[in-house]
Design a protein around this nucleic acid. Structure first.
Lengths: 182, 182
DNA sequence: TTGATATATATCAAAATGGCATATGTTTGT
DNA sequence: ACAAACATATGCCATTTTGATATATATCAA
């Protein structure tokens, strides 16, 4: 799946500016689907408008700079449905935290403490985003997705908090030579 | 974190060729850390060798093309440790499956069935990779990481299998206009 | 009144991907 | 026996994407 699909998907749930699309796709409800950045959002929106898949209307605002609000067209919706009906790519999951954790033996205890506490904080934050999403929307399919997220993230949070101490005890355990020399 | 760190990290656990690094980072134990492709592995290995952080030795093999086996140097190990001791970036998780699921109402039942069954299969496969990883290595920090993975992935698998039917019933529920027209 | 934060769009160098080319061996199906 | 498919192994490069920056304005707090 590509950037085009995500943009059509976001616009399918409601009108938005390029700026709002960026926010949705990095912070909000749509941040679990595809990666996206300004450098790809604005050119893609222009192309989609030229192809008639979205409509853009300029709105001048008192004070703030003009914004261009995009909405999906019927042809855009058709195109989006066509794109949805393909076999999805396998999920991508990348974690620096796990690399650091796997190398806990050669890290300082402070590094490991910071890393696990950041991870616990991040997980709590994601859980909160998902719970907000769930309360703000009674769309059944969205409920299914948010319940999935809550289920998985709570499992992660449980493991992290219950095994924090065990991990901390592993920190630096493979640096015996170094610490002896110092 | 960057490609350089991942390569040093992989070589820190054992020597490897560029080809093997790619395999590790997309299929194996190291596939949960950073994204990587041939187009970045080979140039990075050359640069790391020029900087003295890795050693490359050519090995001619009967039949197969020559391979260049890289190993990490002491300076490379130092550099790797330095890179590990920074605050990690937040985990990245991207899922086309969730986008399709959230749009189940405008997808065909076949699309949704394929998507959920693929997701269940993918999750089982990842679980298997993690379990193999756990059995093949008694390094304590690796055990901590694999237990985390198993914990989280089993939670995901439970939700997916227990809520498969509920999701299937949502498929196509927002296409009433279309189906009436056909 | 200065600095930080938020809204809003846009550009562009640098990084990275993903597909292709090359070469050869092994396995599998017919 | 033969072809096709797959695995090992390195490398290139057009296109895509990022990530940082520029521009402009408003608000709010210190």
């Amino acid at each position: 799946m590509n950037i085009q699909s995500l943009i059509l998907g976001i616009l399918n749930f409601g009108d938005a500016t390029g700026y709002e699309i960026k926010k949705h796709s990095t912070e909000g409800a749509f941040s679990f689907f595809v990666d996206i950045s300004y450098g790809s959002i604005y050119p893609t929106l222009s192309r989609l408008e030229a192809e008639g898949l979205v409509d853009g209307r300029s709105e001048s605002q008192s004070g703030k700079p003009d914004k261009k609000v995009y909405s999906i067209t019927d042809r855009g919706r058709e195109e989006f449905v066509r794109m949805l009906n393909v076999v999805p790519q396998t999920d991508k999951f990348k974690s620096e935290f796990l690399l650091i954790t796997m190398c806990a033996g050669i890290c300082t205890p402070e590094t490991i403490r910071e890393a696990i506490d950041k991870q616990i904080g991040d997980t709590r934050q994601v859980l909160q985003i998902i719970k907000d999403m769930q309360q703000g929307c009674d769309h059944p399919a969205t409920q299914w997705v948010t319940n999935y997220g809550i289920h998985v993230k709570e499992a992660a949070l449980n493991y992290l908090t219950e095994n924090r101490e065990t991990l901390l005890q592993l920190a630096g355990s493979e640096m015996n030579l170094k610490s002896a020399a110092e």
